[in-house]
Design a protein around this nucleic acid. Structure first.
Lengths: 364, 364
DNA sequence: TTGAAAGCGCTAACAT
DNA sequence: ATGTTAGCGCTTTCAA
C-alpha cells in the first residue's frame, strides 16, 4: 500500500490560455467540448496544458455546471432486499435518461438521513427517497430545493408514489377469514415508517368492520432479526395468524416459531408484505402482499426526471401502484384444536434446507 | 402524484440574507466563522435560515475551502451480499471521519463504472473502488485526479487492499487433499475481475506443485444464477470437487447439483470464497475461504481519508488482509465408488427448508 | 460588528 | 471558430 505525492495544482485554464496565446474559454472548450474547437488550436492548447501540467479542477466544474447529471436515491437500508429490485429499476431508468444514480443509506436513522440529504442535495439534480424516516416537514424542505419524489409515503404537495396498502391489507384479511381465522396479530416495523402506520390502521379498521380481532406487537426492526424478536415475544401465547410489516420480519417470525416447534401453516398462518425474492425460496414459502418493487424504482426516477425537465401537474394525491396477494405455503386453515407443539419432521426431495440452528442478521 | 407549482430552487446565503435583512457575507460568517458575528444577529440569521431551509452547498464551499466532505464507494453490484458488510464498514468509518459516503453501482460493467466515476470525481474528495471492472490504466487515471484506494485488486502505485487469495486457495486445496480429493474444478467469475484471475492461477500453480488436477469452467456471472448455469454445464460429467469464484456461485452450483439429485458433500465437495452471510444459512452450510469483509470497508475508507489528509508512504505492494478457511458442511471425504444419483432424502428438525422447485435470480 | 466587493476555476450564453 | 462577459455559491479581504 502506498501513496503518490499529491501537490496542489495552481495551474488554471488562464495559465494555459496565456501559454497558448488564446482565450480562457477556448481552453475550457478544448477539454469540455472537444470538436467545437479548431483541431490545430486544440492541439496547441493541449500541448501547452501538458507542458505546464494543467489539470481541470473538478470542484469548479461542478460549481458552474448546473447540471450534474446525477440523481440521488436514499434508502433506509441497502442490505434490505426490499430495495434490491427498486434500486435496480431506478438505476436502469436513470441510465436510460442519461443520469447517474447515487445511492445513500441512512441505516434506519432519520438523523443520518437528514444530514446525508443535506450534503447530497446540492450535488444532484433530483432525488428519490425510498422509505423516509424523516418527518414530513423535513421532506417538504428538501422538496423546496430540488425535484423530489418520495416512495412509500403520501406527502401532500410532494410527488409521492405508494403501493395499495389498503387494498393489499384487505385482501390479506379476506384470505385469512376464508381460512377460518378470527383474530390476527400485526407485527409492526419502525415507528418512523409511514407505511407501517398505514398498514396497521388498514388492518384495524378493516378488521373492525369484518369482525376480525386485531392485535399489535412491536415496534421491531424491519429485519429478519426483528421478526425473530417478535416471535420470541409472542411465544408465550402464540397467535393463530400473523401479518408482518414486511417479508423479512415475516420470515423471521416464521423462523422463530418453527424453532420453537410450531408448525406453519398448521398452527400458525403468516403473511408478509412486499414479496421480496427470498419469500419464494424459504420453506414454507411466504404468503405475501406483493408490491411492484422494480416498477416503483422505475416510476419514481421517471417522475423526478420529468420534474427536472419542467413537468408539473397540480392536485391529486399520491400515485398508487397496485398490490396483489400472493398466496403461498405459509397460510392455512385455522385449526380449532391446537396440536401440541411437537417437532415437525419434513421430507424434502432435493434436500437443500435451512439448518435449525442457523444464525442470522439484519443483512438478509 | 403532483408537483409543486414553483419549480424547486436551492436556497442560498442570498436568500437567507434577504430574509434576515443582512448582507450575504454576514450569513456566511454566521456559519463559517461563528463568534465573529453578533450573537443576536447570528440568532436571527439562523432562525431565518432554518425557516427557509438553507443548507450550505458543499461544492461552493469546496471551491474556496477545498473540501466537500464526501467520499465515493463504487461497487460492482449492490445486490451482491459480498458487499453488504463492506459497505457497512465503509459507512461507519466514513461517518466517524466526518464524511458522507456516496454509493455507486456499475452493475458489473466497466463502461458504466467509468462514466459513473467521471461524474463523481468533481464531487468527492476520495474514492474507494470495490472490485473494479475497469482496466488498470483507467484506474490510474482516476487515481491521478483523486485519492483512491482499490479493494480486491493489486495496482502498482495505487493504494490497494486485498485479501490473501493465495493463502486462502492453498488452504482450500490442502483441505480437499486431506479429504482424498485428487482433482478439482474451478468455476470462474467475471473476466474483468482481478481476483478471479488471481484465484485461478493460485489454484493451478498450487495444484501443479501438489499433484492436484485442476480444471476450469466459465466465466459465469458472479451470482447465484451464474453458479446454477455452471452446474448445468458440468452436469454431464460432474466433478468430485468444486471451488467457485465466490460464495454466491458456490451456492448456485450446489443448488443446481442438488436439484439434479447429487448429494453434497457425499458426491461432490464445494468450496466458495468470501464467507457471506447466507453461506451459513444454506444447507449444506458452505465451506469457504473467509474474507474480513467489514474490515475491508473500514480499512479502505480509513486509508483514503489518510491520503486526503496528506498521508503518503512510498513503495510496498498491496495491503493484504488474512483469509481463513471455514470448514463447514459442503466438503467431505472423496468417495471412490460413485453412488448412483438418487434423490436424497433429508430429515430436518425444525423443518424450514428450500423447496426443490424454487426459482431464483441474481438478486440473491 | 457589519457591508461591499473581489475572487475561487470553470462553463455557457452572446457577440464577433 | 474564437473572444467577451457573466455568473455558479461561498469565503474573505478591506473599509466603514
Amino acid at each position: 500500500m502506498q501513496v503518490t505525492a499529491q501537490s496542489p495544482h495552481p495551474v488554471t485554464i488562464y495559465d494555459v490560455a496565456k501559454a497558448a496565446g488564446v482565450a480562457p474559454s477556448t481552453v475550457s472548450r478544448t477539454f469540455a467540448r472537444p470538436g467545437r474547437v479548431n483541431a490545430e488550436t486544440a492541439a496547441k492548447i493541449r500541448r501547452a496544458a501538458e507542458e505546464i501540467g494543467y489539470r481541470a479542477n473538478p470542484i469548479s466544474q461542478a460549481l458552474s455546471a448546473a447540471n450534474t447529471r446525477m440523481l440521488g436515491l436514499m434508502v433506509s437500508d441497502v442490505a434490505n432486499p426490499f430495495y434490491t429490485p427498486m434500486i435496480r429499476g431506478a438505476q436502469v431508468a436513470a441510465t436510460d435518461a442519461g443520469y447517474e444514480l447515487l445511492l445513500a443509506d441512512c441505516r434506519e436513522s432519520g438523523v443520518r438521513e437528514r444530514t446525508a440529504l443535506e450534503r447530497l442535495v446540492p450535488v444532484v439534480e433530483g432525488f428519490v427517497i425510498g422509505s423516509s424516516r424523516m418527518p414530513d416537514a423535513a421532506l417538504r424542505t428538501i422538496a423546496k430545493q430540488r425535484p423530489l419524489v418520495v416512495v412509500n409515503r403520501e406527502l401532500r404537495d410532494v410527488p409521492s408514489l405508494i403501493t395499495d396498502n389498503l387494498g393489499g391489507m384487505r385482501a390479506a384479511v379476506d384470505h385469512l377469514q376464508q381460512l377460518g381465522h378470527t383474530s390476527v396479530t400485526y407485527v409492526s416495523g419502525p415507528e418512523a415508517s409511514w407505511a407501517d402506520g398505514v398498514r396497521f390502521r388498514a388492518l384495524r379498521d378493516y378488521g373492525t368492520s369484518t369482525g376480525m380481532h386485531t392485535h399489535k406487537v412491536g415496534p421491531y426492526l424491519p429485519t429478519f432479526e426483528g421478526g425473530r424478536a417478535a416471535a420470541r415475544a409472542m411465544l408465550e401465547k402464540p397467535p393463530t395468524a400473523v401479518i408482518a410489516y414486511n417479508d423479512l420480519m415475516a420470515i423471521g417470525v416464521m423462523h422463530g416459531f418453527i424453532l420453537a416447534g410450531l408448525r406453519i401453516p398448521e398452527q400458525l398462518s403468516v403473511i408478509g408484505f412486499d414479496d421480496i425474492l427470498i419469500s419464494r425460496l424459504f420453506f414454507p414459502t411466504l404468503t405475501t402482499v406483493a408490491a411492484p418493487l422494480r416498477q416503483l424504482g422505475i416510476t419514481a426516477v421517471n417522475n423526478v426526471v420529468a420534474v427536472i425537465k419542467g413537468a408539473q401537474h397540480g392536485g391529486g394525491g399520491a400515485l398508487v401502484l397496485p398490490a396483489t396477494l400472493k398466496v403461498r405455503g405459509s397460510t392455512g386453515q385455522r385449526r380449532r384444536n391446537r396440536v401440541s407443539p411437537a417437532l415437525g419432521t419434513t421430507m424434502v426431495s432435493g434436500s437443500a434446507s435451512w439448518p435449525a440452528r442457523s444464525k442470522s442478521s439484519t443483512a438478509m
